[in-house]
Design a protein around this nucleic acid. Structure first.
Lengths: 276, 276
DNA sequence: CAGATTAATACCTCAGCGGTATCAATGGGC
DNA sequence: GCCCATTGATACCGCTGAGGTATTAATCTG
């Protein structure tokens, strides 16, 4: 199977419409139809159930959609990482969830840069829930993220620090008088609805949130709240307040990397991180 | 990048010889040379350092070799899993290290088959160190393996049972009189040299071993020893003996699966395994 | 220095990929 | 119930580009 075929199939499977998929791929509909049916013939499997009015995925088609996405990400990753490695002075890209502990990051970078053989580290501040994708598709080589919030599925990782959680509330909120809240206490604010990596938002009450700046703005305006690791207190704005939460699962900051890409630079950075 | 280009590059990078690589790919040498240099031009990166006598990988070439192998495995996995899913009665393939606990396996299979909606499970007994590869390239959907012996790098897994280790020795060996040995005690036999997945063997003393049957044969002959989980005692031959080891790391049998492929059947099997 | 080895270049052929025109099937509106 | 819009499939054509053969250029060896 060629990546071209996979790209075609993913487009059709996502659009469930040959015309729109062809448009998205910048080609005409007939060759796309032909390519898909050729793919089906070669695999010996029906991927799409089509009537002349509608297209639906078969069971096998759903499997291929999942697998093809993963495979295409791996190919993209190969391309990106090779391009980076070919640069005159290749560095590594460290993805960090915007809003993660900046002291930890600063300490890590300082410690690594003091290492012999350190290469330039480009820090990529990434949006909510985007870090895993960056690692998988090769835009980043290594990342700091938070368990259990971020999924480390398919990644290698080492624990760095474990912290308790704090509840971040508007200044002057009734709960800010308390010295702690229990994790199961009801809060009279709706939870934020964080943007997913595909740009959609979960359903429910509460404001839609695209990034951390917006989140804190909304907290300050009294529209929502947020749970964060304890270290976030150091970088809070004046108009929001943190209250420790007891009974909530602890948050572990981990350093993660894609399983097979253990370049020396990544290995060094990981080792440095684990020592400090 | 197309998978064809990746296959070409991997062949050249492994052979470090355009002629042999072309032979392996079933094509002539000139179009292969051209394809590789076109790939380099498109990536804007030199992948191979060639003189008219020899070919060597550049730094970037080494990166692409690693990444391309992973990407090609993902594409192969997509193809295999889709083919399987398109079968009239698609089942799942469970890879088990030959020599792993057969009681656990039997119990798991029995429990799963009693589940509503269970699909046929094909058990694939696989060689030493081969299980991870089977999962990654789509020949298996889920596997039983042993931490920390098998690496679960890039896989999702759940712990099943944890056991202590036993030392497996020829019947009549002096240590078999003892009721335990310490993990750091010297043994007057050489360790077995297990075949690696690429067919090579580690250096050192001790016999080369291809599979478990051969291993136990060699133990019975007094040529080597073996460390195994406690449950292995149930399936020992008459002519070998197990002695508990104390102080050694425990062996955990885990059920593992590739991170993104959570089909319902795999999820059911995993849930069943964790409950029992 | 001659010959062997090996990658690159020149040139040719044709498979197959994509485009346009059209058909066939289906569902909705009146 | 009939017509038309919608949508995927088919037919056919043109051209890009992948692969083959012949040859050259460069380098190592005896």
């Amino acid at each position: 199977m060629e990546t071209r075929e996979l790209r075609y199939f993913v487009a059709v499977a996502e659009e469930l419409h040959f015309g729109r998929a062809a448009l998205r791929l910048g080609m005409a509909q007939p060759p796309l139809s032909r390519a898909i049916s050729l793919l089906e013939r070669r695999l010996g499997v029906t991927l799409l159930e089509r009537t002349s009015r509608a297209v639906a995925l078969t069971e096998a088609g759903a499997v291929l959609l999942r697998e093809a996405r993963a495979a295409l990400e791996a190919v993209e990753a190969a391309e990106r990482r090779t391009r980076r490695a070919g640069q005159p002075r290749p560095g590594i890209v460290l993805a960090v969830k915007a809003g993660a502990s900046s002291e930890l990051l600063a300490k890590l970078l300082a410690a690594y840069e003091a290492e012999p053989g350190a290469v330039p580290v480009e820090v990529l501040l990434s949006g909510i829930g985007e870090v895993e994708r960056l690692l998988r598709d090769g835009r980043a080589d290594v990342a700091l993220l938070h368990r259990p919030f971020n999924s480390v599925t398919g990644l290698d990782f080492e624990d760095l620090v474990t912290e308790s959680q704090v509840l971040i509330l508007p200044a002057g909120h009734p709960l800010t008088g308390r010295d702690h809240v229990r994790h199961d206490e009801p809060i009279d604010l709706p939870p934020p609805r964080m943007m997913r990596s595909d740009g959609s938002y979960p359903d429910g009450p509460g404001p839609q949130v695209r990034d951390h700046a917006q989140l804190f703005q909304l907290i300050a305006l009294g529209r929502t709240y947020h749970l964060a690791p304890d270290s976030a207190r150091a970088q809070l704005r004046e108009d929001v307040t943190a209250v420790p939460v007891i009974g909530a699962p602890e948050i572990t900051t981990v350093i993660a990397w894609p399983p097979h890409s253990r370049s020396k630079a990544v290995a060094d950075l990981v080792r440095t991180a684990c020592r400090s």
